[in-house]
Design a binder for these strands. Structure first.
Length: 421
DNA sequence: TCTGGGGTCCTAGGACCC
DNA sequence: TCTGGGGTCCTAGGACCC
């Protein structure tokens, strides 16, 4: 059996943990750049605020004081997430952190009768120690765990924990679950299924496997099996990331190449630091730049370019330099750039690098790696990005990003590091 | 005026191999 | 007159997740 532990309205709950006056109020948290709604309290859902709404459409609600708005504060959410996960891990060490606010706990070896009381204890402890409310769904597969979690969240009678442990409960739960709410059935597939008469998860599992395979491929078959209690979704524990992306939208359109270079270099530097933190090196560096796609009246341009790195690299100087060369090739005058990003991919463990016969950077690589190691150390101890290469921007990385309703960093500094001073 | 950011996996089709 | 069969690898695009 699996337990899916999922924080309720996570970002809103993080804000409330330090601002209890937000309790019971309609609150939303916005995406980066104060763009659109990415988290809603129960009260704001009840007000009819859809997920993803651009904030300017909610101006009347905000101005009349019925809706409270917060900018996203990822340093805070990351820190609270770590604290919640630590409590879960202490209770059930065999755990897979699935996202910032979710984890699958492997309950193998426990008696079924002890599962619900144990999970209720976890819910209470997380609430008491962190202030974050969570719900837990228990079932034989991850997809059914998701279903159970929905019920635990929706109906207070479950007191935070819902278990699906026999065919009867499963059939009832599936009949009450709209097909679009099933984990793995997205906004593209749901309408297609509905058009064929599949409206609930129960309708879906009633179809033959061959029908599912024809219409949804092997991904759909996995979901179909999982809903019947047959595990088909693999664990993804402790895997190194295959790609790392750092991208941002800008508060204002950028029209100067020098200004965009500062941003792109910054993103490249962040990617390099993330790579080193994972102990990885990247065989490819790519960048993209984009004009504002919501302004059809302006000329549009959204190119992308990749560079092979042989041998793979993780030093800040090498990745920043690759990114700036790529930008030189992509830059065109006469456009206003709204967004840009750097992607490092084809990653391998840093301790397993193959040398290259044609390694142009060999002479300076050792130096670049030593410089990067010192940057990591100083930046960690100083608690802000004190050391950077000259093309990166001064100031912290959130500069130039709109954050008009941001809460303070209650538990960390701006880089998410614990405050030790 | 104002619309996020970061990932994964699968599939189809083309190029290439023998 | 006539053009097989069986693979692999790579890429772009789509779909999904949070």
């Amino acid at each position: 059996m699996f337990a899916l532990a999922d924080c309720n309205n996570f970002f809103v709950s993080c804000e409330r943990a330090f601002q209890p006056e937000l309790e019971g109020k309609a609150v939303v948290v916005l995406s980066n750049n104060d763009g659109c709604v990415v988290a809603r309290s129960a009260e704001s859902k009840a007000l009819g605020v859809p997920m993803g709404t651009p904030i300017f459409k909610l101006k009347p609600l905000v101005d009349s004081g019925r809706l409270i708005v917060r900018s996203s504060n990822y340093a805070l959410y990351g820190d609270l997430s770590r604290r919640v996960m630590n409590i879960l891990r202490e209770a059930i060490p065999d755990m897979e952190v699935y996202s910032i606010d979710e984890a699958f706990l492997n309950l193998e070896g426990l008696q079924e009768a002890e599962m619900v009381p144990l999970c209720r204890g976890i819910v209470a402890k997380v609430r008491k120690w962190t202030g974050i409310p969570i719900s837990i769904g228990i079932a034989g597969t991850k997809t059914l765990g998701k279903v159970a979690n929905h019920f635990a969240k929706r109906y207070p009678g479950y007191r935070g924990v819902c278990i699906i442990n026999d065919g009867d409960k499963r059939a009832k739960a599936l009949a009450l679950t709209p097909i679009g709410d099933v984990w793995g059935i997205g906004w593209r597939t749901a309408p297609k299924l509905e058009a064929t008469g599949v409206r609930t998860a129960a309708d879906f599992v009633a179809r033959p496997e061959s029908w599912v395979h024809t219409h949804l491929g092997i991904v759909g078959v996995r979901t179909w099996k999982e809903l019947q209690g047959i595990p088909a979704v693999e664990d993804n524990n402790g895997e190194r990331r295959q790609s790392i992306c750092t991208s941002r939208s800008f508060a204002e359109l950028i029209t100067s190449q020098e200004e965009l270079l500062l941003r792109v270099s910054d993103f490249a530097g962040i990617c390099a630091a993330k790579l080193r933190k994972e102990g990885s090196v990247a065989g490819e560096v790519a960048i993209f730049i984009q004009t504002n796609r919501f302004r059809p009246d302006l000329p549009q341009y959204a190119p992308y370019a990749v560079m092979r790195m042989d041998p793979p690299v993780s030093s800040t100087p090498e990745i920043v330099s690759a990114a700036s060369k790529l930008l030189e090739g992509l830059w065109r005058d006469g456009y206003g750039y709204k967004r840009a990003g750097v992607i490092v991919s084809d990653t391998t463990p840093a301790d397993a690098i193959q040398g290259s016969l044609f390694d142009a950077g060999a002479a300076t690589r050792d130096r670049d790696n030593r410089i990067s190691a010192i940057m990591d150390k100083v930046n960690y101890e100083a608690g802000c990005n004190l050391l950077r290469v000259a093309t990166q921007r001064p100031g912290h990385y959130a500069d130039g990003i709109r954050r008009e309703h941001c809460s303070p960093q209650y538990s960390t500094d701006w880089n998410g590091l614990l405050c030790v001073k």
